[in-house]
């Protein structure tokens, strides 16, 4: 094991870096795709929209549903082969290793995230939307400032989950020759015939990556929640200068 670390430490680290880079970029892009798809899927036609607009929305929703079902319903390893070799042989486009890897993992993550985002939006209390519409916000404003921030908070654990799955699942990209952590593991074990030791080292690296990520995500979540306490504003000059009532120190309100 020590021999592996000494001799292959560099390539293991660069494999790990590739894995992390792909996982991070793809989780981010997957979220962007997921939010776009999830938003469209929860969009309701406005009552004054004409038949054409309604029709377009239905077709778009149908296409998106197909996308989600297909990419959730087939193994990513096959999708990778399908897209990478398919683009090569059918269209004559040679995707670079990086772009192929990123495209595949992103759209795969996007398919999962779309469902997550849809659930996240539906999980926000309908009263939030009514509250926003009642003060004159448009559908877009309601989504941007009220619904999506809450949906995002609700689905943060799921985004973290996806990131961790992506860190591990990038290993299927070794089928198209992406030199990530798993590919490095196979090269080492192939060269030295020390499967057990190589696997141990690689597993430790995977575990460190995922564990650190999940801790960081937890920290981000609790930051989003804000402090459990709040400060009372006592020295705000504007606070008690106007109005029908005076602030009462003892009761803390209007009594």
């Amino acid at each position: 094991m020590i021999y592996i670390v000494q001799n292959y430490g560099g390539s293991l680290l660069s494999g790990a870096a590739t894995t992390m880079a792909i996982a991070l970029i793809c989780t981010f892009l997957g979220c962007v795709i997921g939010f776009a798809v999830g938003l469209l899927q929860t969009a309701q036609p406005h009552k004054k929209d004409g038949a054409i607009k309604r029709g377009i929305l239905r077709v778009v929703k149908l296409v998106l549903t197909a996308y989600v079902e297909v990419f959730r319903g087939t193994p990513m390893m096959l999708q990778a082969a399908f897209i990478y070799y398919g683009m090569g042989s059918v269209f004559g486009i040679n995707l670079g290793m990086w772009s192929a890897a990123i495209i595949i993992v992103s759209i795969n993550t996007g398919a999962y995230m779309a469902e997550t985002v849809r659930g996240g939006i539906l999980s926000v209390d309908p009263g939030q939307r009514e509250g926003a519409r009642a003060i004159g916000m448009t559908h877009m404003q309601t989504m941007m400032y009220i619904i999506l921030p809450q949906a995002l908070r609700n689905i943060m654990p799921q985004i973290g989950n996806n990131l961790i799955i992506n860190i591990k699942d990038t290993c299927v990209l070794s089928i198209i020759g992406t030199v990530e952590l798993f590919f490095t593991f196979r090269s080492i074990s192939g060269a030295l015939y020390t499967y057990f030791e190589a696997a141990s080292v690689t597993m430790i690296i995977y575990f460190v990556l995922t564990f650190v990520c999940s801790r960081i995500l937890r920290a981000i979540e609790s930051r989003m929640d804000g402090p459990a306490n709040f400060d009372l504003a006592t020295n705000d000059t504007l606070a008690f200068t106007s109005g029908l009532t005076k602030y009462n120190d003892k009761t803390g309100g209007l009594h």
Binding site: L232, D236, A239, Y247
Partner: peptide, 20 residues
Amino acid sequence: REYAMEYLSKVGMAQYIKAK
């Protein structure tokens, strides 16, 4: 902010502006 503070003090909630 001024409008918000004006009405929040009318309802006796100006102290709680930072609360969720």
